[in-house]
Design a protein around this nucleic acid. Structure first.
Lengths: 127, 127
DNA sequence: CGGTATCCTCTACGATACTG
DNA sequence: CAGTATCGTAGAGGATACCG
């Protein structure tokens, strides 16, 4: 699964319409694949979320607690982003009160190597 | 080389002084090492910079061109951050006009595994 | 060439309160 | 419980101009 299959070009276009200057510079269309990868995983809580889901589904509030410091709003936003990308899945459990669990997809699992390396690196260097 | 050797605690402290509410929440003091690692490497251009320096010193303007879309200001900021952390080194070449080259340190090289994994992942999944 | 300085916009993110 | 709504601020980051 992928988002697009070709290396996208740098897209820096400047158009003038009357006095209005509009610059189109899509931050995801980067020439360097590392940069593009970082745009997906490098967000503020994304790596951690993925990591905390690796051992099984986790419920929303539990997740926010695990992240220690992230507001519900932020976690919600990141989860939605990651759901549309296909990194995580959302499951509604029919209970009262309602419960929602998030799980990692196969695509999400494909990032765990990278994250593990990052974790190892961080720990080895006392980050 | 490391920044600190122990896992820092969550530091979320709320203090009231009169009417003023001040919340201390240092973004670098995260319980999850992945999150902390991301704070170092996950910044907007840091991974790419490191990657482009891996084959030898690169001059400032060349670097900005390689990054394709980053302003001089941004590159400058990132480089300074990364210099103080010890990821890169700055060398002034005595020429006219002046030339400055940046190189990767040993500590910087220690990140290349992670970045390589990220690159591979991104390319395999068409990111 | 390798930056600084200035200005300005936009959005990331936190706090807080509310809802089905 | 799992969000949504609203508001507010700090800072990220771009444009532009200037300098030794």
């Amino acid at each position: 699964m992928g988002l697009n299959s070709e290396t996208p070009p740098i897209h820096t276009e400047t158009s003038f319409s009357g006095r209005t200057k509009k610059i189109v510079r899509d931050p995801c269309l980067q020439p360097c694949s590392i940069e593009r990868g970082m745009r997906i995983l490098g967000g503020k809580w994304k790596g951690s979320i993925l990591w905390h889901l690796k051992d099984g589904p986790v419920r929303f509030n539990d997740l926010t607690r695990m992240l220690g410091g992230a507001s519900k709003k932020m976690v919600d936003q990141r989860l939605k982003e990651m759901e549309t990308i296909g990194l995580v899945e959302r499951h509604v459990l029919q209970t009262r009160p309602i419960a929602v669990a998030y799980s990692i997809t196969d695509f999400g699992k494909s990032t765990l190597n990278v994250l593990e390396q990052l974790k190892t690196w961080a720990e080895q260097h006392g980050i």
